[in-house]
Design a protein around this nucleic acid. Structure first.
Lengths: 245, 245
DNA sequence: CCTTCCATCTGGTATGGACCAGTCACGCCC
DNA sequence: GGGCGTGACTGGTCCATACCAGATGGAAGG
């Protein structure tokens, strides 16, 4: 392996060529965000390849975040990702709008649950303590990009379920319960979207994603929110700005 | 955790079944980290599937980070990821060791370059200003997990190239030049490893990865380090702990 | 005008065959 | 004992084909 720098030449691999040709059309602006690509069978003929080879190239572009698919509908050019700073939570709606995009939120469920051992530890409660769990799906420009599951301590937020969660939860916690966030512990891991997450995002099982887990504390060190989010990998860029301790 | 969520009907999809059967062997401990899986042709026969179907299942497990491949050698069970806080840079070696793993660093190249427009802007210099660029590959327990490209300002670090970079660069900057980091701006994005990055990590083009870009400033606001890292997606979990501003 | 239904288009799954290109362990040779 | 070559093994690429199931849009019917 060369110790010198990057840049490879046409490997002669058909699916790499195919990938680069389509990537070229996107880079040149011939194909624009949300545009639909030709069908796999059209590309197959156009490039003189087997369909499997065409699909291999498409998978590469999908992994790079350049294109995405809508099940049994077609392949589309990905819009640019939104920038997200999980440590500065101003609310999904406001920061998506600040980037000139159109956000939308859908509450999938909101219910009372009891703490299992893991959640009990997170909240510093006994197993069996009452908690609220809210599941939401969030969209940017009409595309579902993330699904989240938020857990809050029922003892701190009595009767929370009377609110609508299609708006900012942070706002509700602050104005109705006087809870505000002083510290966030965030952990992130690239993952594959499978099962429930893939299904509600309309993605094929195995699509690359990003799992974000956020624990928010108030000034007294109480856990205000415990949040797990699953993002489509091509929909987000994480940005964090911190002072070193 | 309480995955009260829907789902869990065996779809009857062969590659999902195959995936789950192998995942079961890993979960049960029958297959342990770094263990080699049976060959694709063995699995094919064992499960009565076509090889393409077996591979589809393996790709899913790879996307989930459960297994990885060594080119033309075989599929192996992934070791657990290392936890990495890009905002608290103590150095790769020390935090990997702190997690009971064995780190290693390899310097691929170290050279003087001139600032292109992008780098010039980052460093607040004119295009053409002299900079040092260092490329390194880093390993955990013998497996290459990330490749990084560090750029530093030659004006702040005269004659930097006389050092060996198989040790901590942060340490060199501090002890030899009195530079220490007061602020980090980090941005992360799931990506696909392709071309140069895939090659030096011994990965197939298209493997999911995580791109991390870090700009480090000293107390005077000067750029000390500009770093781009590409991680194997299954090798790392990002963790950030911050106070809200 | 709206709803319903159906033909068609699209991607999703699965098979099986072929050949290529590194890897790796074994055994030969020096 | 150590270096080298070789051949079996393993994943990587590519092909052709078939059928399934959801998406879609237009035609038919209310």
């Amino acid at each position: 392996m060369t110790n010198t720098a990057p840049d490879q030449r046409s490997d002669g691999l058909h699916y790499i060529d195919m990938r680069d040709r389509v990537a070229g059309r996107i880079a040149s602006g011939e194909l624009k965000p949300t545009d639909k690509l030709p069908s796999e069978r059209q590309l197959q003929e156009e490039m003189g390849l087997a369909r499997g080879t065409v699909r291999e190239g498409l998978f590469q572009l999908e992994a790079e975040g350049l294109i995405y698919r809508r099940d049994r509908s077609g392949w589309y050019v990905s819009p640019p990702p939104v920038v997200y700073d999980p440590t500065r939570w101003e609310g999904f709606i406001s920061y998506v709008e600040a980037q000139g995009r159109v956000p939308a939120t859908e509450t999938m469920s909101a219910e009372t649950i009891v703490a299992d051992p893991l959640l009990a530890e997170v909240f510093g409660r006994r197993a069996g303590a009452p908690l609220y769990m809210i599941r939401r799906r969030r969209h940017v420009d009409g595309r579902a990009v993330l699904v989240e599951q938020i857990v809050v301590d029922a003892a701190l937020t009595p009767d929370l379920l009377r609110f609508s969660f299609d708006q900012s939860l942070t706002e509700i916690l602050k104005s109705a319960y006087g809870l505000s966030v002083a510290r966030n512990v965030v952990s992130m891991q690239p993952c594959a979207l499978t099962g429930y997450e893939a299904e509600v995002l309309g993605a094929k099982s195995g699509l690359p994603g990003l799992a974000v887990q956020r624990t928010s504390y108030d000034a007294q060190g109480r856990v205000v929110e415990f949040d797990r989010e699953h993002w489509r990998h091509d929909a987000v860029r994480i940005s964090v700005d911190t002072r070193v301790r």
